[in-house]
Nucleic acid binder design. Structure first.
Lengths: 119, 119
DNA sequence: CTTGACATTGACATCAATGTCAATGTCTAC
DNA sequence: GTAGACATTGACATTGATGTCAATGTCAAG
Protein backbone atom coordinates (compact mmCIF):
# COMPACT_ATOMS: atom_id res chain seq x y z
CA UNK A 1 0.00 0.00 0.00
CA UNK A 2 1.34 3.45 -0.88
CA UNK A 3 1.35 6.58 1.20
CA UNK A 4 -1.56 8.09 -0.65
CA UNK A 5 -3.73 5.11 0.23
CA UNK A 6 -2.81 5.35 3.86
CA UNK A 7 -3.58 9.06 3.79
CA UNK A 8 -6.97 8.43 2.28
CA UNK A 9 -7.87 5.67 4.69
CA UNK A 10 -6.73 7.52 7.79
CA UNK A 11 -7.53 11.06 6.85
CA UNK A 12 -3.99 12.00 7.78
CA UNK A 13 -2.08 14.09 5.22
CA UNK A 14 0.84 12.42 3.48
CA UNK A 15 2.90 15.29 4.78
CA UNK A 16 2.14 14.19 8.32
CA UNK A 17 2.69 10.51 7.65
CA UNK A 18 6.18 11.32 6.46
CA UNK A 19 6.64 13.60 9.43
CA UNK A 20 5.69 10.86 11.85
CA UNK A 21 8.16 8.61 10.15
CA UNK A 22 10.86 11.23 10.58
CA UNK A 23 9.97 11.21 14.26
CA UNK A 24 10.58 7.50 14.47
CA UNK A 25 6.94 6.54 14.82
CA UNK A 26 6.66 4.63 11.56
CA UNK A 27 9.04 2.44 9.63
CA UNK A 28 7.52 1.62 6.29
CA UNK A 29 9.52 -0.57 3.96
CA UNK A 30 10.52 0.69 0.53
CA UNK A 31 9.58 -0.61 -2.87
CA UNK A 32 12.21 -1.06 -5.57
CA UNK A 33 11.18 2.36 -6.82
CA UNK A 34 11.87 4.01 -3.50
CA UNK A 35 8.20 4.48 -2.68
CA UNK A 36 7.17 3.85 0.90
CA UNK A 37 5.22 0.65 1.34
CA UNK A 38 2.70 0.26 4.15
CA UNK A 39 0.63 -2.63 5.43
CA UNK A 40 -2.65 -2.87 7.31
CA UNK A 41 -0.98 -2.59 10.68
CA UNK A 42 0.49 0.73 9.61
CA UNK A 43 -2.94 2.12 8.86
CA UNK A 44 -3.94 1.33 12.39
CA UNK A 45 -0.72 2.68 13.73
CA UNK A 46 -1.19 5.95 11.92
CA UNK A 47 -4.67 6.35 13.35
CA UNK A 48 -3.39 5.80 16.83
CA UNK A 49 -0.48 8.14 16.35
CA UNK A 50 -2.85 10.79 15.11
CA UNK A 51 -5.07 10.43 18.11
CA UNK A 52 -2.19 10.62 20.51
CA UNK A 53 -0.58 13.58 18.87
CA UNK A 54 -3.91 15.36 18.84
CA UNK A 55 -4.28 14.52 22.49
CA UNK A 56 -1.00 16.21 23.24
CA UNK A 57 0.96 13.11 24.06
CA UNK A 58 4.64 13.81 23.38
CA UNK A 59 6.10 11.81 20.51
CA UNK A 60 8.67 10.30 22.84
CA UNK A 61 5.91 8.71 24.84
CA UNK A 62 3.96 7.66 21.79
CA UNK A 63 6.98 5.83 20.53
CA UNK A 64 7.55 4.23 23.91
CA UNK A 65 3.98 2.97 24.05
CA UNK A 66 3.97 1.74 20.47
CA UNK A 67 7.27 -0.02 21.02
CA UNK A 68 5.90 -1.70 24.11
CA UNK A 69 3.20 -3.27 22.06
CA UNK A 70 5.65 -4.95 19.73
CA UNK A 71 5.84 -8.67 20.38
CA UNK A 72 9.59 -8.34 20.52
CA UNK A 73 9.37 -5.96 23.44
CA UNK A 74 11.56 -7.32 26.22
CA UNK A 75 9.68 -5.75 29.14
CA UNK A 76 12.91 -4.23 30.18
CA UNK A 77 13.59 -0.64 30.87
CA UNK A 78 15.76 1.58 32.92
CA UNK A 79 14.62 2.85 36.27
CA UNK A 80 14.58 6.33 34.82
CA UNK A 81 12.31 5.32 32.00
CA UNK A 82 9.99 3.56 34.41
CA UNK A 83 9.79 6.65 36.54
CA UNK A 84 9.22 8.86 33.56
CA UNK A 85 6.46 6.58 32.36
CA UNK A 86 4.92 6.55 35.80
CA UNK A 87 4.71 10.30 35.74
CA UNK A 88 3.25 10.25 32.29
CA UNK A 89 0.69 7.76 33.43
CA UNK A 90 -0.41 10.04 36.23
CA UNK A 91 -0.57 12.99 33.86
CA UNK A 92 -2.55 10.87 31.45
CA UNK A 93 -5.04 9.97 34.15
CA UNK A 94 -5.49 13.59 35.05
CA UNK A 95 -5.94 14.56 31.45
CA UNK A 96 -8.48 11.85 30.87
CA UNK A 97 -10.44 12.92 33.92
CA UNK A 98 -10.35 16.52 32.81
CA UNK A 99 -11.40 15.73 29.28
CA UNK A 100 -14.18 13.51 30.56
CA UNK A 101 -15.52 16.35 32.64
CA UNK A 102 -15.49 18.65 29.64
CA UNK A 103 -17.14 16.02 27.55
CA UNK A 104 -19.97 15.89 30.04
CA UNK A 105 -20.30 19.65 30.01
CA UNK A 106 -20.39 19.57 26.26
CA UNK A 107 -22.79 16.69 26.08
CA UNK A 108 -25.09 18.30 28.59
CA UNK A 109 -24.97 21.52 26.70
CA UNK A 110 -25.71 19.97 23.36
CA UNK A 111 -28.60 18.07 24.88
CA UNK A 112 -30.21 21.21 26.20
CA UNK A 113 -28.91 23.89 23.89
CA UNK A 114 -31.32 26.38 22.49
CA UNK A 115 -30.58 27.07 18.90
CA UNK A 116 -32.39 30.23 17.91
CA UNK A 117 -34.53 30.14 14.79
CA UNK A 118 -32.13 29.34 11.99
CA UNK A 119 -30.25 32.43 10.94
CA UNK B 1 -4.23 37.10 44.95
CA UNK B 2 -1.50 38.12 42.54
CA UNK B 3 -0.28 36.36 39.44
CA UNK B 4 2.81 35.03 41.15
CA UNK B 5 0.69 33.27 43.75
CA UNK B 6 -1.47 31.70 41.11
CA UNK B 7 1.64 30.56 39.27
CA UNK B 8 3.04 28.99 42.38
CA UNK B 9 -0.16 27.23 43.30
CA UNK B 10 -0.87 25.89 39.84
CA UNK B 11 2.64 25.29 38.58
CA UNK B 12 1.76 27.32 35.50
CA UNK B 13 4.22 30.05 34.53
CA UNK B 14 3.07 33.62 34.86
CA UNK B 15 3.86 33.95 31.21
CA UNK B 16 1.26 31.34 30.39
CA UNK B 17 -1.33 32.77 32.75
CA UNK B 18 -1.09 36.07 30.91
CA UNK B 19 -1.18 34.22 27.63
CA UNK B 20 -4.38 32.41 28.57
CA UNK B 21 -5.87 35.74 29.49
CA UNK B 22 -4.92 37.12 26.09
CA UNK B 23 -6.76 34.17 24.62
CA UNK B 24 -9.88 35.09 26.49
CA UNK B 25 -9.72 32.23 28.96
CA UNK B 26 -9.24 34.33 32.07
CA UNK B 27 -10.54 37.70 33.11
CA UNK B 28 -8.82 38.73 36.30
CA UNK B 29 -9.80 42.03 37.79
CA UNK B 30 -7.21 44.74 38.29
CA UNK B 31 -6.02 46.34 41.45
CA UNK B 32 -5.63 50.12 41.67
CA UNK B 33 -2.00 49.59 40.82
CA UNK B 34 -2.82 47.76 37.62
CA UNK B 35 -1.80 44.37 38.97
CA UNK B 36 -3.99 41.45 38.00
CA UNK B 37 -6.09 40.19 40.89
CA UNK B 38 -7.21 36.56 41.00
CA UNK B 39 -9.51 34.62 43.29
CA UNK B 40 -9.79 30.97 44.27
CA UNK B 41 -11.99 30.13 41.32
CA UNK B 42 -9.28 31.41 39.00
CA UNK B 43 -6.76 29.02 40.48
CA UNK B 44 -9.07 26.19 39.63
CA UNK B 45 -9.76 27.61 36.23
CA UNK B 46 -6.08 27.83 35.45
CA UNK B 47 -5.59 24.20 36.40
CA UNK B 48 -8.38 23.16 34.12
CA UNK B 49 -7.13 25.29 31.29
CA UNK B 50 -3.71 23.78 31.67
CA UNK B 51 -5.06 20.27 31.52
CA UNK B 52 -7.07 20.99 28.45
CA UNK B 53 -4.30 22.75 26.62
CA UNK B 54 -1.95 19.92 27.45
CA UNK B 55 -4.52 17.52 26.12
CA UNK B 56 -4.55 19.34 22.83
CA UNK B 57 -7.94 20.92 23.17
CA UNK B 58 -8.02 24.08 21.08
CA UNK B 59 -8.40 27.27 23.10
CA UNK B 60 -11.55 28.14 21.22
CA UNK B 61 -13.20 25.03 22.60
CA UNK B 62 -11.82 25.55 26.07
CA UNK B 63 -13.36 28.96 26.13
CA UNK B 64 -16.66 27.59 24.89
CA UNK B 65 -16.75 24.98 27.62
CA UNK B 66 -15.72 27.37 30.35
CA UNK B 67 -18.28 29.90 29.19
CA UNK B 68 -20.95 27.23 29.27
CA UNK B 69 -20.33 26.68 32.91
CA UNK B 70 -20.96 30.27 33.81
CA UNK B 71 -24.30 30.71 35.54
CA UNK B 72 -25.05 33.50 33.11
CA UNK B 73 -24.79 31.18 30.15
CA UNK B 74 -27.93 31.50 28.10
CA UNK B 75 -27.88 28.03 26.60
CA UNK B 76 -28.14 29.63 23.26
CA UNK B 77 -25.88 29.17 20.33
CA UNK B 78 -25.88 29.25 16.60
CA UNK B 79 -26.47 26.12 14.60
CA UNK B 80 -22.90 26.37 13.36
CA UNK B 81 -21.53 26.49 16.87
CA UNK B 82 -23.68 23.54 17.88
CA UNK B 83 -22.39 21.55 14.94
CA UNK B 84 -18.83 22.53 15.66
CA UNK B 85 -19.25 21.49 19.26
CA UNK B 86 -20.79 18.23 18.21
CA UNK B 87 -17.74 17.46 16.15
CA UNK B 88 -15.48 18.43 18.99
CA UNK B 89 -17.41 16.17 21.28
CA UNK B 90 -16.89 13.22 18.98
CA UNK B 91 -13.20 14.05 18.70
CA UNK B 92 -13.04 14.32 22.46
CA UNK B 93 -14.60 10.90 22.88
CA UNK B 94 -12.14 9.38 20.47
CA UNK B 95 -9.25 11.07 22.22
CA UNK B 96 -10.40 9.87 25.59
CA UNK B 97 -10.75 6.33 24.32
CA UNK B 98 -7.32 6.45 22.76
CA UNK B 99 -5.69 7.89 25.84
CA UNK B 100 -7.42 5.31 27.97
CA UNK B 101 -6.04 2.55 25.80
CA UNK B 102 -2.56 3.98 26.10
CA UNK B 103 -2.98 4.33 29.80
CA UNK B 104 -3.78 0.64 30.00
CA UNK B 105 -0.76 -0.25 27.91
CA UNK B 106 1.35 1.90 30.16
CA UNK B 107 -0.17 0.56 33.34
CA UNK B 108 0.23 -3.01 32.20
CA UNK B 109 3.77 -2.34 31.24
CA UNK B 110 4.69 -0.72 34.52
CA UNK B 111 3.07 -3.59 36.39
CA UNK B 112 5.19 -6.17 34.62
CA UNK B 113 8.27 -4.24 33.66
CA UNK B 114 11.61 -5.70 34.40
CA UNK B 115 13.96 -3.10 35.63
CA UNK B 116 17.48 -4.46 35.37
CA UNK B 117 19.66 -4.27 38.45
CA UNK B 118 20.05 -0.59 39.21
CA UNK B 119 22.57 1.00 36.89
C1' DC C 1 14.61 56.66 50.83
C1' DT C 2 16.74 52.79 48.90
C1' DT C 3 16.85 48.08 47.77
C1' DG C 4 14.96 43.80 46.26
C1' DA C 5 11.10 41.15 44.92
C1' DC C 6 7.41 41.21 42.00
C1' DA C 7 4.25 43.39 38.48
C1' DT C 8 3.39 45.46 33.72
C1' DT C 9 3.79 45.47 28.58
C1' DG C 10 5.99 44.32 24.50
C1' DA C 11 9.42 42.45 21.59
C1' DC C 12 11.99 38.68 20.05
C1' DA C 13 13.26 33.57 19.87
C1' DT C 14 12.11 28.79 19.79
C1' DC C 15 9.86 24.38 19.01
C1' DA C 16 6.46 21.19 17.26
C1' DA C 17 2.97 20.46 14.06
C1' DT C 18 1.51 21.57 9.80
C1' DG C 19 0.71 23.71 5.09
C1' DT C 20 2.61 24.58 0.68
C1' DC C 21 5.65 24.77 -3.12
C1' DA C 22 9.30 23.28 -6.21
C1' DA C 23 12.12 20.20 -8.80
C1' DT C 24 12.27 15.69 -10.01
C1' DG C 25 11.29 10.67 -10.66
C1' DT C 26 7.71 6.78 -11.43
C1' DC C 27 3.60 4.54 -12.93
C1' DT C 28 -0.70 3.85 -15.50
C1' DA C 29 -3.43 4.39 -19.23
C1' DC C 30 -4.20 5.82 -23.63
C1' DG D 1 5.91 7.58 -25.70
C1' DT D 2 3.29 11.10 -23.69
C1' DA D 3 0.07 12.87 -20.25
C1' DG D 4 -1.62 12.94 -15.81
C1' DA D 5 -1.66 11.17 -11.26
C1' DC D 6 1.17 10.17 -7.62
C1' DA D 7 5.79 9.61 -5.27
C1' DT D 8 10.34 11.59 -3.54
C1' DT D 9 13.12 15.10 -1.00
C1' DG D 10 13.89 19.53 0.66
C1' DA D 11 13.00 24.25 1.51
C1' DC D 12 10.17 27.84 3.23
C1' DA D 13 6.02 29.82 5.85
C1' DT D 14 2.81 29.71 9.46
C1' DT D 15 0.51 29.00 13.82
C1' DG D 16 0.14 28.01 18.71
C1' DA D 17 2.39 27.44 22.94
C1' DT D 18 6.27 28.71 25.20
C1' DG D 19 10.77 30.86 27.01
C1' DT D 20 13.32 34.98 27.70
C1' DC D 21 14.71 39.64 27.91
C1' DA D 22 14.18 44.61 28.43
C1' DA D 23 12.41 48.84 30.21
C1' DT D 24 9.60 50.38 33.60
C1' DG D 25 6.33 50.79 37.66
C1' DT D 26 4.92 49.17 42.51
C1' DC D 27 5.37 47.60 47.03
C1' DA D 28 7.18 45.99 51.43
C1' DA D 29 11.05 45.89 54.54
C1' DG D 30 14.99 47.77 56.57
Amino acid sequence: MKIGDVAERTGVATRMIRYYESQGLLEPTRGTNGYRVYDEADVDRVRRIRNHVTAGVPTRLIRAVLDMEKPTWTRECTAELAQMLGKELAALDERIACLSASRETLRGFLAGAVVPADA
